[in-house]
Amino acid sequence: MRPFTYARPESAAAAVRAFMAAGAGAHYIAGGTSLYDLMKLDIEKPQHLIDVTTIRGLDAIETNGERLRFEALAPMSAVATDKVVLRDYPILAEALWKAASQQLRNMATVGGNLLQRTRCLYFRNGAGGTSVGNTYPCNKREPGSGCAAIGGLDRGQAVLGQSSSCTAVSPGDWPVALVALDAYVEVLGAGGSRAIPIAELYRLPGSTPNLEFTLQPGEMITAIVVPKTKAGRHSTYHKIRDRESYAFALASAAVALDMDGDTVTRARIGLGGVATKPWRATAAEALLAGKPLTPATALAAGHAAFADAKAGQHNGFKIELGARTVADALTIAAARNRS
């Protein structure tokens, strides 16, 4: 691993100052479960690490008031077991506890989770690192080098949002649930603070898949804010994997429903495991509005969510799997907290 300097600021403002002063090669590190992992693979090569986990009081979980507010350094395991989150927002709790393992959730922060990088095999394993030995082109890792996944072993790749430069899946579960609930992040940068809707935090790969987020250099996520909604009670994060636990999603659906009896007044649907960024299935949402939730409408919504999907060589199964994952998620969410 390449050498780097290591700083531990005591406040968010000091962290931003340290970042700006360090210049090129500066990187924040929170739990390190994505960044340190990729440093070992020689994919991330920071020259200066700024450890934000020593900042005091940036891990609060606030559930009173109009909004849920999770400060960036709250561990995934803490938010997943918050009483209000568990009771009123199963969509959020499930997106967290179905991710990674308890060891990793104790280390990983809810802020860092939003910025984890893809698990695309060619991105992760193609840098010629110690445990791999081989090199593969990857436009995300090395802009302009090409994409080995296109025409390659693409079983895990995206069917929505891909470009001719990149088909890598956005890996996180938590961002998918947050997109469905119209959450936003608060960020602090050299120019002050601002709020960014979660959906706008992510870029489509287009011709620059190396640029994944819309944060400016030095901008730090300080909190995640979720507007409260009654739909949280009719919600789920449904995740389908190659094994039952401790695996990334092949397909997942984050669903929250406003219901009037059996009728869906409004549906919110996010898709994971199938797209190049946390995906909002607006066509499926529109199809359900005002309709009763039945097995037929649920499946129709699932198919609407994948109407624009395009398969590569080995990932065509994700389209039908994804549609049925949405249908199942709708059924689970609708059955919750009926009173």
């Binding site: 739990g31 390190g32 479960t33 992992d37 990793l104 104790n106 280390m107």
Partner: peptide, 27 residues
């Protein structure tokens, strides 16, 4: 595995279990 994928390196830090392979010692 040295990449957080197997759990063989599990230890407790301040009473909570973590994967020590993905924990910077500095932390």
């Amino acid at each position: 595995c040295d990449h957080g994928q197997c759990g063989a390196c599990t230890v407790h830090v301040d009473g909570r279990r973590v994967a020590s392979c993905l924990t910077l010692a500095a932390k």
